[in-house]
Design a protein around this nucleic acid. Structure first.
Ligand SMILES: [Mn+2]
Ligand SMILES: [Mn+2]
Ligand SMILES: [Zn+2]
Ligand SMILES: [Zn+2]
Lengths: 162, 162
DNA sequence: TTTTTAATTGCAAGTTGTTTGCATTTATAA
DNA sequence: TTATAAATGCAAACAACTTGCAATTAAAAA
């Protein structure tokens, strides 16, 4: 599987540098969306000193995305999160503790078809983004006196007729 | 419909200021997701001089969101887009010209149930975000020599087994 | 209506996440 | 090995957004 990704890098004419291999490792070792800074901190810890500059990580992530190794995930946070692009799946995000659960079922093929049928401007869809938000069991328990760290749009109580 | 929103403002104990009314107008006059700067420019044009500061628009949007008048839309862009919160719907976004089409069908109730059934960490879902991406008809035609302005993750050609 | 009060605004300055320019380093092709 | 183009680190720039504070203003009280 890792060789799969290395193949992609080579195919794209990208050099097999240590930064890239380390970043790849950061993704493979943890199946969870990560942002540039997550990876930066992880590699700093792993490799001892500041082996890789944060700027390099940004550039690496961009090239990984263009190569199709990773893709962006919509977590409604204020930085960009990426994960390996090797399986199509979606997420539920806890709006209190920000923990993320993946689920493999997608089930919007029919919706996609219906959308296309009704659409005036489009006749094909290349991609979709589907994420769920809620409060996880753990946080529901603790919610008595916990403060919300982050809250996506329509989560607020006044939100009507959805 | 506008009075509905004004009611919300009053309910939330917010003053009925001209900035807020103008911003409300900016949303009502155009059924398309907008970011702070869109509204800023629109109001500048509309009201002549710099009637409202951009900072005020940011603050207004935040309070509108908390009040449930608007909600955020996930357009995979680098700024936050909002639209009126008065109907549950989703979007298809053209990844070339960024034009947006809305569609009212949702159809992921079943998926939501399935997800909850399988979920280990969650037992309820408060919200979901579902957007489609593709190249619109117009841009498909012109695509011979057009340059992509913006491209979300998995849209790139190398993206595999999705 | 006038006064009072607390919310709202504009301006300047700050923060955060991300990008760019450029000289130096490094993987790979020759 | 050497040559070469790509990749990196560092400093600086940027864009989107937030904050502090004094001045303004909507709405409550008088
Ligand atoms: Mn995932
Ligand atoms: Mn919409
Ligand atoms: Zn949680
Ligand atoms: Zn288009």
């Amino acid at each position: 599987m890792k060789s799969e990704q290395i193949k992609k890098l080579k195919n794209a004419g990208l050099k097999l540098t240590s930064s890239r291999l380390l970043t790849l490792g950061a993704f493979s070792s943890l199946c969870k969306p990560q942002n540039a800074d997550d990876i930066y901190k992880k590699l700093k810890k792993l490799t001892g000193k500041d082996k890789i500059d944060l700027v390099t990580i940004y550039r690496t992530l961009t090239s990984f995305e263009q190569t199709g190794i990773v893709k962006k995930v919509n977590l409604q946070k204020d930085s960009v999160y990426y994960e390996l692009a090797n399986s199509h799946h979606h997420h539920i995000v806890c709006t209190v503790c920000e923990s993320v659960e993946e689920f493999n079922l997608c089930g919007i093929e029919k919706t996609t078809k219906d959308v296309l049928k009704k659409s005036i401007k489009f006749n094909s869809i290349a991609q979709h983004s589907l994420e769920f938000f809620g409060v996880c069991k753990k946080c529901t328990k603790n919610e008595k006196r916990s403060v919300k760290k982050f809250s996506p749009s329509s989560l607020n109580p006044q939100c009507q007729r959805n």
